[in-house]
């Protein structure tokens, strides 16, 4: 059970992440994309995954029962090589539906003050 006091908890990375063409290429090649000038639409997850998981690490969630329920991306522009991002993740909600706990974490990538991508990960903790 997620500690309800943790809803609203935010973690902002101290260090920025620089997007390399190599990282885009590596991700793109898996899905057969040959345009390496812009990142594929779900590339953001390779930047945000670690942080969104560490945000929940000591939250009381039973990780052995966690499954990925849903994912959403809103892109204000595509990610390109050379982008430098600060990533912040927030536990946006935690609710109980029919005994399953549903937790949503939002992660934002900012380049300076510009919000470039937001992504929402919904995790389901099976009863």
């Amino acid at each position: 059970m997620l500690n309800p006091d943790l809803v609203g908890r935010t973690f902002t990375s101290a260090e920025s992440v620089t997007v390399t063409e190599q990282a885009i290429r590596k991700f793109a090649e898996v899905i057969g994309e040959t345009n390496f000038d812009v990142a594929p639409p779900t590339f953001t997850i390779s930047i945000t995954l670690d942080q969104s998981q560490s945000l929940l690490q000591d939250s009381g969630l039973d990780w052995t029962r966690v499954v990925h329920g849903e994912q959403k991306f809103v892109l204000n522009r595509a990610i390109v090589p050379g982008d430098v991002f600060i990533c912040s993740s927030t536990i946006e909600s935690a609710r109980n539906v029919a005994g399953n706990e549903i937790v949503t974490v939002r992660s934002d990538l900012h380049a300076d003050t510009q919000l470039v991508v937001s992504t929402w990960s919904t995790l389901v903790v099976r009863a």
Binding site: P40, P41, E70, K72, F73, V74, L75, A78
Partner: peptide, 18 residues
Amino acid sequence: GKFLSDISGPENVLEFSA
């Protein structure tokens, strides 16, 4: 997402959810 990118170009995908 690749299927979606092939319709619009990856630079023109604004939202994507599943």
